[in-house]
Design a protein around this nucleic acid. Structure first.
Lengths: 120, 120
DNA sequence: ATATTATTTAACTAATTGGTTAATTAACCA
DNA sequence: TGGTTAATTAACCAATTAGTTAAATAATAT
């Protein structure tokens, strides 16, 4: 998982990590408070690892305050995702019927060797 | 990787798969044409697996046309990602200075640094 | 100093991923 | 029929991931 966008998407591909971001969207929160909802499901080291994935992906910034580690969302990685998404906006905003029509017709002549063109 | 959003993000967390989506954004393409740019790097079965990940995540739809499998982008999974992203728009659209200020102040009294503050 | 609280690191394990080659399925073509 | 093309499946392997428990680090509080 080398490039930035890949590690960001990878970090988002887990419901525990997304729930942590949801909590952080309400404001700075330290590790043990972030952990609280999950401690029945998993241990604190597991939480710590999830936070490291988020931090390495640039989605959060962890700071120090006495023995606590307040975390907050870092907008930049989210911006990278948003920017990447923009090029596909067409695909979810168009009506699906028109989209299908568009995709089926715009590439008619690239199909290759089928002379009978068995399209539906 | 159970829920839809997780498998969608997971599918996007790979540069080969994102490159395939980029190609598909120009129109329907069958498997061997999609594979072409990658055949120096990996085998056809590897490509086939990547496409299965995209398909299982709902990001593409694979159809049949004679011995070819034309693939096209499915907007719905991308819409799910876009909808999820919306709740975080604030974090990448605000100026970073103001964002930091906001996060630092809105939760001042939840820090626990203040001595008599034994939370909940 | 010592104890307590917050968090991370180490060492380990099971499950998953991403690739391989070889075999198989499926449709077309002559 | 047999041969070719397109794509998938099977069997396997190495690397990574996601969790565990136990130990270590670090700051605060007594």
């Amino acid at each position: 998982m080398k490039d930035n966008l890949s590690s960001t998407f990878n970090a988002l591909a887990d419901p525990t990590r997304r729930a942590m971001l949801a909590k952080l969207s309400q404001g700075e929160t330290n590790v043990s408070d972030l952990a609280k909802p999950f401690l029945k499901k998993m241990s604190l080291p597991a939480i710590s690892k999830h936070l490291k994935v988020l931090e390495d992906a640039g989605l959060i910034i962890k700071t120090r305050e006495a023995q606590w580690r307040p975390c907050r969302i870092n907008g930049e990685a989210l911006k990278d995702v948003s920017d990447w998404m923009e090029q596909y906006r067409f695909f979810w905003e168009e009506s699906f019927d028109r989209l299908d029509e568009y995709l089926k017709t715009m590439t008619k002549n690239k199909k290759g060797k089928n002379k009978n063109e068995t399209k539906k």
